[in-house]
Design a protein around this nucleic acid. Structure first.
Length: 573
DNA sequence: GCCGTTTTCGGCCCGACTGTTTTCAGTCG
């Protein structure tokens, strides 16, 4: 099993944590973290690049030394440096720094003075009151550590974006109602439209901060006030969700919004540009000496730094700054570009609404087409259609299309990909469909090469059009099944097939990085909701979030086209 | 450890809050 980018990144992150505890040069530590991030953002596997003889030192943040270490890991599966570090101190110290309130300095002190090497050691020492005797520690720190250890066990880390939206809306309304508040907006990973968010970052502009801070920390859903200053406060809601509030004057709104939107890596890179120009960028504005030369809007800040406006979804330090400098940012796809939905269900299988209801709902959204893609028989739990039942549905759709104006219902099917790569419907009926959406719904645990071959064999069928939810992941519930995504994408391109971005909030599959991989090789994707109700046709915007984070433009997306143009693309030779 | 439109050496983003401090280190985002 080749070493994955994530595994190499994880190893570098462990090294960084342990080096930091050891007191290594902070910039050396950062270099390991930067390299880890570069690896996670890579659209090709580092192992295959090494095999192809590519020079990894050409990648941003990776030089000669780290390139050699990546080579070492792809060859041996291990890193000597990590083994050395773990020989000098317990490897689990790397997990201690993840506890809020503990950083490298304190972890070092805990290890040296109290021989603490594990989370359990730490819990026992804190419970026995031994922490407070260390210099720099006190009773409060000890209590906080115990509290955080207990909390770690019960609370899941990140929540889905759609769930965060539900918590955010009432809180934002509440803050907007505070007298004197001008703007209140959610920044952070929420604004970058990341698939999951760890916390909410709210930015408020107003002249006087005190009333807002008071109002915020006394919000009825607040379970705990973590910190509260004059311009910044952090609370934990009863759900466990952490919310940070920052208050700035109106003249700083743009700079603060940029700062608070992140990502951290993007901010660091943009601030470095400011430094190079002899300026200073912080959350209050862009400064030349004492004088603020920009800050009211984000656009103003970007402009003064010689950059075109960068959409929040792109702010990941994945090349967007360089592209902004060269005025080569993508013109991202928007909801207005979407002409139809290519994957949904009706009450014929596991959907809730009728064919006619789904059609009416799609028409109300202004779509030109909607593909009805109910399950096939193998998926018995969803009451999948037999060829006979599908044939009847095809007739019903034909009849419905005769009565509909302004929208066309496409005859489709979400066809199961069987274990041997065959499709779950005979060619005779596949031929009668406008398109197929094919998916893996069982045998998730095949080895990567077997799963990849299963899908590629299915794509060999000339009726295969779109691979639905290609990795099968469910956020927070189920890992993606092992798959060689590079081969799948290239295989699809060679055969005239496509992949789907499934917009269900718990799927978002393909993810943003896979979208970017597809774009790089010239493969178009469909953005589809997989709606099981009329209301969830509205999930389209979550799929767009992913596509935009993956740099996709209207041309990269299948369903920005008219049915006529789309039909040509689907036609296989 | 990385990197170069000041640089192959000497830089590397910036400020708020907390707790344990009598002036600031550590942590966080």
């Amino acid at each position: 099993m080749p070493v994955t980018n994530d595994e190499i990144a994880e190893t570098f992150e462990r090294c960084a944590a342990l080096l930091e505890i050891e007191g290594a040069n902070a910039f050396r530590v950062r270099a390991y973290r930067t390299a880890a991030r570069t690896l996670r953002n890579l659209t090709q596997s580092a192992a295959s690049l090494v095999r192809a003889g590519e020079d990894l030192a050409a990648l941003p943040g990776i030089g000669k030394d780290l390139a050699a270490k990546i080579g070492e890991m792809t060859e041996t599966g291990h890193l000597a440096l990590l083994a050395e570090l773990e020989g000098r101190m317990p490897g689990e110290l790397a997990q201690l720094v993840a506890i809020p309130g503990l950083g490298p300095k304190r972890v070092k002190a805990l290890h040296e003075r109290l021989k603490i090497g594990t989370v359990e050691d730490l819990r026992r020492a804190a419970a026995a009151g031994r922490l407070r005797r260390l210099p720099g520690f006190g009773r409060k720190t000890e209590d906080k550590i115990l509290h955080e250890i207990a909390r770690r066990r019960e609370i899941g880390r990140r929540i889905k974006l759609a769930t965060a939206e539900q918590a955010a809306a009432p809180l934002l309304d509440y803050l907007k109602a505070v007298p004197g508040v001008e703007d209140a907006v959610i920044a952070g990973s929420f604004r970058r439209r990341q698939e999951t968010v760890g916390d909410l970052d709210i930015l408020v502009t107003c002249a006087k901060s005190a009333p807002v801070m008071k109002r915020f920390t006394t919000y009825e859903d607040v379970a705990e006030v973590v910190s509260a200053g004059t311009t910044r406060a952090t609370v934990r809601l009863r759900s466990g969700l952490q919310v940070d509030l920052r208050v700035v004057p109106k003249a700083s709104y743009g700079a603060a919004l940029h700062y608070f939107t992140g990502s951290k890596a993007h901010n660091i890179a943009v601030r470095a540009i400011a430094v190079k120009k002899g300026l200073k960028l912080n959350e209050y504005g862009l400064f030349k000496g004492e004088r603020r030369i920009a800050g009211k809007t984000e656009a103003e800040v970007f402009k003064r730094l010689g950059l075109t406006y960068i959409a929040p979804e792109l702010r990941q330090d994945r090349g967007e700054i360089e592209a902004a400098r060269k005025k080569r940012l993508p013109k991202l796809v928007t909801l207005a570009d979407i002409r139809g939905d290519l994957h949904c269900h009706t009450d014929a299988t596991d959907g809730r609404n009728t064919l006619a209801e789904m059609a009416a709902a799609a028409k109300a959204r202004g779509y030109a087409y909607l593909a009805i893609s109910d399950h096939t028989r193998h998926l018995t739990v969803a009451h999948g259609l037999t060829p006979k039942r599908l044939a009847r549905q095809i007739e019903r759709i034909d009849r419905l299309n005769e009565t509909l104006k302004g929208i066309r219902i496409l005859k489709a099917s979400e066809v199961d990909i069987l274990e041997d790569g065959r499709l779950d419907l005979p060619d005779s009926i596949l031929e009668a469909l406008d398109l197929t959406v094919c998916a893996v719904h069982f045998k998730f645990n095949l080895p990567a090469d077997k799963q990849t071959e299963r899908i590629l064999r299915a794509m060999d069928n000339r009726h295969f059009n779109i691979l639905a939810h290609p990795t099968g992941r469910l956020l927070g519930q189920r890992e993606a099944y092992p798959l060689d995504m590079e081969r799948v994408l290239r295989g699809a391109l060679e055969r005239g097939c496509y992949l789907e971005v499934n917009a269900q909030p718990e799927r978002l599959d393909l993810d943003d990085l896979h979208c970017r991989m597809a774009k790089e090789i010239g493969l178009k994707v469909a953005i589809s909701t997989d709606a099981h109700t009329t209301g969830t046709l509205g999930y389209m915007r979550y799929g767009l979030d992913v596509a935009r984070r993956g740099w996709l433009e209207p041309d990269d997306v299948l369903n920005t086209r008219s049915w006529r143009a789309l039909k040509k693309l689907l036609k296989r030779g």
